[in-house]
Amino acid sequence: MKYDEKTLSALISGQLPWAETKEIMSGGKDPDRFRMVLEIVQSMVSFTERILLPLGPHLYIVQKGTDRIVKCDCGYEFGDYRTNWKFMSRVFVRNSQESLQELYHPDQGVDPDWMELREFYCPGCFHLLETEAVPPGYPVMFDFQPDLETFYRDWLQQPLE
């Protein structure tokens, strides 16, 4: 099982026609996918550091010198991937009727006493990277802490360096 680069690029950009997407969904997985997608996303970003793991549409864990950091495709660097990148982000909290109402009619939104809507932006490009819908005072979530070493060494059987 293998898909060509053109197909995978279209899949990633959300432009692959449904029939082909369905075939990929229903078929078995192509073991080569990780490598191919890595190559595709590496060609999409403007920086040169090697991507180790994509974290989201804009965020990547990259090898920068001896460090492994989270980096936005705009070039902004969030620091060591073992620390929550949100600590380096810009934050906007919708915790008032007024700010919530920009997005939701009051009937269809939350009660700000019970819940706030947090938006985490990239300080470089101000893309919205994550949202959190939590009660006030809830600790910021560290969404995903990958075990990079195990992943490369044992699962991919490839050197991480």
Binding site: D107, Q108, D111, M115, L129, E130, E132
Partner: peptide, 23 residues
């Protein structure tokens, strides 16, 4: 659910769907 978004959030910057209400 009415006072909270039930699902925590969307993904990668996506927003939760609207809450319900009673009418």
């Amino acid at each position: 659910e009415g006072r909270v978004f039930h699902g925590g959030a969307g993904l990668f910057g996506g927003y939760p769907g609207a809450t319900g209400y009673r009418l």
